[in-house]
């Protein structure tokens, strides 16, 4: 019977594998489309008379924080004559159940236009309040710039900072705030990374 159980296991895995291979291209396409929609919504305030330019790949120096991917793919927002802002992906690596992928929109002064969680596996009802459909928490970053707060204030309240955390789920907001903190601190010193035409 052990042999049979093993066989059933193999057949089931094969079956799931087959469906996985068949659906993979569709899923990638659907994810990309959802991401584009989010990107458009995030960039909306910057689009007054501008448009979304095609993404640019940036090689980063070795001292770049882990929240930025290598190479970094930035999406500049431009008018005919100048750049008005940029959208870039950042990753909060210390989520409760794996990495949290976020999209961050900044204007030319590196002021936060918006930030959204794109993909995560945080606990439903607790950590998933980083989503805008569950809570307004993530909107608290809008309009902030790295210099607006003292470095110690870029943390959740439990860590002595100024951002709320969720009852019963401190790890998720801490991961988001910390990733944002290290990203903004780094970008403030290396603004050239975000220039469409450096």
């Amino acid at each position: 019977m052990t042999v049979r159980l093993t066989l059933f296991g193999l057949i089931a895995s094969l079956f799931v594998g087959l469906v996985y291979v068949m659906t993979k291209p569709l899923i990638i396409e659907a994810k990309e489309q959802a991401r584009q929609e989010q990107l458009y919504l995030l960039a909306a305030p910057l689009l007054a008379n501008g448009r979304i330019a095609s993404p640019v790949q940036r090689e980063l120096p070795d001292d770049a924080p882990a929240s930025l991917e290598h190479p970094l793919s930035i999406t500049p927002i431009v008018t005919d004559s100048e750049q008005t802002g940029v959208v870039l992906p950042i990753t909060a690596l210390k989520g409760y159940s794996g990495p949290i992928e976020l999209l961050l929109a900044l204007d030319q002064q590196q002021r936060i236009v918006g930030i959204r969680a794109i993909e995560h596996r945080e606990t439903p009802g607790l950590g998933d309040r980083i989503e805008t459909r569950k809570s307004d928490w993530i909107l608290a970053f809008n309009g902030l710039k790295y210099d607006d707060l003292a470095p110690k204030d870029w943390a959740v309240k439990n860590d002595g900072g100024q951002f709320d955390s969720f009852t019963g789920a401190t790890i998720t907001p801490r991961a988001v705030v910390d990733a944002l903190n290290e990203t903004l601190a780094y970008l403030a010193q290396h603004p050239v990374i975000l220039e469409a035409n450096p």
């Binding site: 059933f8 296991g9 089931a12 895995s13 079956f15 799931v16 469906v19 996985y20 659906t23 569709l26 899923i27 659907a30 994810k31 489309q33 959802a34």
Partner: peptide
């Protein structure tokens, strides 16, 4: 095993057909 395999397939299919 059977139920888990089928559920995973259902999850993949929903993801592919209606991501929202």
């Amino acid at each position: 095993l059977v139920i888990a395999a089928l559920t995973t397939c259902a999850e993949l299919l929903v993801q592919a057909l209606d991501y929202q």
